[in-house]
């Protein structure tokens, strides 16, 4: 395997970019310093994704309903970056598409991976904090034997 092989797959990078907080993503991108110019292939655009689910949780799929989403495509030095994020999020979507394009440039790849890891860390922290509160509501029920009818 060549040494330039990305450490994080594109799928994982894109997940971190989509689930990360917009302000944090922009803050981290801002720390990269001067970035090469980009060209829009598709300006941030609002649209819908029909969300599918499965009957009985794992049976045949059905259409649950639509979700608002934003998409964007651009190129940086010939590298094409794409992003799809839920919600009406033009800025976040632009930042994610830029990160996706830059990640294809070996000079920027390590920095983008660091950003993705930082976003994943934030997410893990947020989720753990939430989980801690939720776990306090874990309940143990006991069944009671009714009256004299026992045995």
């Amino acid at each position: 395997m060549p040494s330039t092989e990305p450490v994080l797959e594109r799928k994982r990078l894109m997940r971190a970019l989509a689930l990360g907080r917009e302000d944090r993503l922009i803050e981290l991108m801002g720390q990269l310093g001067d970035l090469p110019p980009f060209e829009y292939l598709r300006k941030p655009q609002k649209g819908l994704v029909m969300v599918k689910a499965r009957a009985d949780a794992h049976n045949a799929p059905f259409n649950l309903g639509e979700a608002l989403a934003t998409r964007c495509s651009l190129s940086v030095n010939g590298n094409v970056g794409h992003a799809y994020v839920l919600g009406d999020e033009p800025t976040k979507c632009l930042a994610a598409a830029l990160a996706d394009a830059l990640a294809q440039d070996p000079d920027y790849r390590p920095a983008i991976e660091q950003i993705a890891l930082a976003l994943e860390m934030d997410l893990a922290r947020e989720r753990a904090a939430k989980l801690e509160k939720i776990q306090k509501t874990k309940v143990e029920f006991f069944t009671l034997v009714r009256g004299e009818d026992a045995d």
């Binding site: 819908l48 029909m50 608002l68």
Partner: peptide, 12 residues
């Protein structure tokens, strides 16, 4: 709004 497409089934 335009529809981009269908998601993968969500895994509950």
């Amino acid at each position: 709004l335009k529809r981009f497409g269908y998601s993968e089934p969500v895994e509950t």
